[in-house]
């Protein structure tokens, strides 16, 4: 039964991805990307990764769709048509890379395999110690906030830096650049932060 859900969701994902590539209307493409994220979130839920699904639904389907729409309102919602000659070399490179990636998946452990290396490096240790060390029922929170506290702090700093970067690029509205007119008609930038 769960396999059927997987197949249906993956089929939808593939169909939507192809539709996004072929669409010229960027507004519709943004909407489809939101649906793509929501379907990914359902997929994560089926795979029992609820914390990831939560994030994907909130960030992928919610915030990034809004930001994309805000960007479209500043630019245009039609993709401009560019004629490009067919590039056989690029096609061959993409096909070869794709084939190599598919070939590499044969070496990967089966989905949900309990003997997979990823489940045995530090995970066993965490699962064993978590009740005595931390005593938090949600293991994901315990690992992210406590065992991996450094990484999570780094991630928070990344988000902060992203916010500061956008503020610098789009102008937080605080720095006022006055353009002083000189007598000879040329303008001169005089920056002043208020």
């Amino acid at each position: 039964m769960i396999d059927v859900i997987h197949i249906v969701l993956f089929t939808f994902l593939a169909v939507i991805a192809i539709a996004i590539i072929r669409l010229r209307d960027l507004f519709a493409a943004v909407m489809l990307m939101g649906i793509f994220s929501l379907l990914s979130a359902s997929l994560f839920t089926v795979m029992d990764a609820v914390d990831v699904a939560f994030t994907e639904a909130a960030v992928g389907a919610g915030i990034s769709t809004i930001l994309m729409l805000a960007t479209l309102s500043l630019t245009t919602s039609k993709e401009s048509r560019l004629y490009q000659r067919p590039q056989p070399l690029a096609l061959i490179a993409v096909l070869l890379t794709g084939a190599a990636l598919v070939y590499a998946t044969f070496d990967m452990p089966r989905y949900g395999d309990p003997a997979a290396p990823i489940h045995h490096h530090v995970a066993d240790d965490y699962i064993e110690r978590i009740d005595d060390d931390i005593g938090v029922p949600n293991m994901v929170t315990a690992i992210l906030a406590s065992y991996r506290g450094y990484d999570t702090w780094g991630e928070t700093t990344v988000i902060f830096t992203a916010g500061v970067g956008v503020m610098l690029l789009l102008g937080g509205g605080r720095t006022v650049y006055r353009i002083r007119r000189r007598k000879d008609g040329r303008s001169e930038d005089g920056g002043s932060a208020s």
């Binding site: 914390d51 994030t55 909130a58 960030v59 915030i63 938090v136 994901v140 929170t141 315990a142």
Partner: peptide, 17 residues
């Protein structure tokens, strides 16, 4: 977030939304 799915990041995104 200690007891169920979620945590600071998800909560922040929802509040921002």
């Amino acid at each position: 977030g200690d007891y169920g799915p979620g945590g600071g990041f998800q909560a922040g995104v929802i509040f921002g939304a």
